Amino acid sequence: MSRLEIYSPEGLRLDGRRWNELRRFECSTNTHSHAADGSSYLEQGNNKVITLVKGPQEPSSRSQVDTSGAVLKISVNITKFSKAGRSRTGHKNERRVLEMQTALVRTFNKSVMLHAYPRTMINIEVHVLQQDGGLMGTLINGITLGLIDAGIAMYDYISGVSVGLYDTTPLLDTNSLEENAMSTVTFGVVGKSEKLSLLLVEDKIPLDRLENVLAIGIAGTHRIRDLMDKEVRKGRRSKIANALSG
């Protein structure tokens, strides 16, 4: 695809969005109450992700016990049908998944109050049903919602989004076509602050452009945080209403 098609002279992207617009964002919590202590379903653009949180629970072996706090385990399962066309398999894909899991554990180790749950394990399973760019940001958002639904203490929301750089223009919340055509950065931001819990740079970003990319990324995560908070509050009101009616 030609670079000229990514961002038109009129300031429109392939899907009709402006440079600073998020993709469609829909989420729900407590979606798999029979299978986990906390769960969420999230659609961010064409990304579709299910998150299951189990725990805090007793570790399966003594080697996993940490007397100072809980051990956080995150596994990412990317289904073979998640991407248009044939899914690539092999060592490259496995390495990518391992890198994502490592980055996610590091991100949430700093954000979950693990010290409140000594000698336990928190097991998080993420199932990617469909992917279309900006996947790491979507995974962060899904995990955040799942942890909150499980009642696990966190310092604040962690919200994620990707930003691409088209020549000198930052493009918020990139899809796969945009990611393939430009350098991208994924941000994980703590609450409504400017504190980064994740900064993942794909390819090279000129230093003199990084400030603009950072600014639009943080603003985007704040909007996502508000959307997630709205859903969490809605879910809590629903639980209270059900408890009162029961």
Rank of each mutant, 00 (worst) to 15 (best):
E43L: 03
R106L: 02
K110Q: 15
I74L: 10
V49I: 13
H115I: 06
N30S: 11
P9Y: 13
H91Y: 06
L42P: 04
Q44Y: 00
V49H: 01
S63H: 03
N93V: 15
H32W: 00
H127S: 09
A103M: 02
S61I: 04
P9Q: 10
T67A: 03
K80V: 14
H32D: 05
E21D: 14
A35T: 00
S75G: 02
E58V: 11
T102L: 01
L52K: 05
E10N: 10
E125H: 15
K110V: 08
T31K: 06
S40D: 06
R13Y: 12
F25L: 12
A70H: 10
V49P: 11
E10H: 10
V76Y: 08
R106M: 01
V76R: 09
L114A: 12
R119G: 15
E94C: 00
N30E: 06
L14K: 04
N20H: 07
H34G: 03
K92V: 12
V76I: 14
N123P: 00
C27L: 09
E94L: 11
P9D: 13
S87F: 14
R23S: 08
Q44S: 02
K48S: 03
R88P: 04
V53S: 07
G11L: 06
V126T: 13
K80H: 13
S28A: 04
S111T: 13
V49W: 01
G11V: 07
G16E: 07
Y117W: 14
Q101N: 07
G16V: 10
A36G: 12
L42D: 04
G85W: 03
I50W: 11
R96E: 09
I122S: 11
T102Y: 01
N109Q: 14
T102F: 00
A84V: 12
V126I: 09
E10A: 14
A84Y: 06
M113R: 11
D66I: 04
K80Y: 10
G90A: 01
R24F: 03
P118D: 11
F81D: 12
V126A: 03
D66N: 06
Q101T: 07
P118H: 07
V49Y: 04
N77H: 15
L22T: 07
G69N: 15
M113I: 13
Q44M: 00
G85V: 02
L98P: 00
I122D: 10
G55V: 12
G45P: 14
I74M: 13
A116F: 09
R24T: 03
L104S: 05
D37R: 01
T67F: 05
A36I: 10
P118W: 05
S82Q: 10
E99L: 06
A103G: 01
A84C: 06
W19Y: 09
E58L: 11
G90T: 04
R88H: 03
L22H: 11
V128D: 07
N46P: 00
H115N: 13
L98R: 15
E26Q: 12
E21F: 02
A103K: 01
N123R: 06
E94W: 03
W19V: 12
T29E: 05
S28M: 03
L42G: 03
G38H: 08
R106K: 02
T67R: 05
A103R: 02
Q57F: 04
V97M: 07
H32S: 03
S68L: 09
N20C: 07
R24W: 01
N20I: 09
V53D: 09
E21A: 06
F108D: 07
E21Q: 14
I124V: 15
P9W: 08
N77F: 12
P56G: 09
K54G: 06
K73G: 00
H34T: 07
D15G: 07
F81R: 08
